[in-house]
Amino acid sequence: MTMQQDPATTRFTPGQEILHRHFTGDRLVYVRAVRVVAHDDLGLRLWIPRNTPMSATMTADGRGLRDMPFAEWVTVERELTPMRWTGPDIFMYTPPDAAHSVMFFWYPRDKFFGWYVNLEEPGVLWQDEHAAGVDITDQDLDMWVNRDLSWSWKDEHELEERLNFPDHYWVDDADAVRAEGLRVAELIEKGAFPFDGTWCDFRPDPSWSLSQSLPPGWDRPRARG
């Protein structure tokens, strides 16, 4: 198997189905099959419609990370569970080398209603003869941006709670995470790209179909830069 992991040379093709995977350490905790809108020097753009096939880490009784205190989460048995995305359609933009991505939300499907800034470790892009994708670690603290460019932090309480468990938590520099968010906030408050109306009217290629399940290769080891 030949693996390509150089973000400077890896390029995905418009319409290509790839895997967007979240890890904590080397453990795969979340994965979705997504569609490439474009990939160039501007960055990676992805389309994630409602009902996209995915797997998320759950307990045997169907609870997720947000359904219990973190102190309990780190002690219970859990496994990746197949399901489908039940949220709104998402256009995701990841700038090159950035420690965040920006998700554009529509609800209903023809009405743009805001941006979600996901703070994360810079993704590692990979592809081989059989599959392709991007691997990240979500850093929990996020931002919600309204259409009028007012914004707020999200999930601050989760970050603070989990920092009390350094042996189990995947965020080791909360100050750096917040600093990245503040850099994005400067763009938001100026109405600068990508918060300037770009892509707010995006609609997907009608020929793109939903897969019935995650494609082969979804559970391969994490790619590291």
Rank of each mutant, 00 (worst) to 15 (best):
M3N: 15
M3R: 15
R11M: 05
T13A: 06
T13N: 09
I18R: 02
R21W: 00
H22Y: 09
H22I: 01
T24N: 13
G25Q: 02
L28F: 10
V29F: 09
V29C: 14
R32I: 05
A33R: 09
H39A: 01
L44I: 04
L46M: 06
W47S: 07
I48M: 13
P49M: 09
R50A: 01
S55N: 11
T57H: 06
G62M: 05
R63F: 04
L65V: 07
A71Q: 08
V74M: 11
V74I: 10
T75H: 06
R78T: 09
L80W: 04
L80P: 10
P82E: 12
R84M: 03
P88N: 14
I90F: 00
I90K: 07
Y93R: 12
P95K: 04
H100P: 03
P108I: 07
R109G: 15
D110F: 01
K111R: 12
F113N: 15
F113A: 14
Y116N: 11
Y116H: 10
E121F: 00
E121G: 05
P122F: 04
W126A: 01
W126F: 06
D128C: 05
D128S: 10
E129H: 09
G133I: 02
V134E: 09
V134Y: 07
I136T: 15
I136N: 11
T137E: 07
D142R: 14
V145T: 13
N146V: 12
E156M: 01
E160H: 06
R162I: 05
R162Q: 15
D167R: 04
H168Y: 14
Y169D: 15
V171T: 14
V177Y: 05
R178M: 00
R178S: 07
A179R: 12
A185W: 02
F193K: 14
P194F: 02
P194T: 14
G197C: 06
T198A: 11
T198Q: 13
W199R: 13
W199A: 06
D201W: 00
P204I: 00
D205N: 10
S207G: 07
W208F: 02
L210D: 00
L210N: 00
Q212P: 03
G217R: 04
G217V: 02
W218G: 07
W218L: 02
P221W: 01
G225T: 08
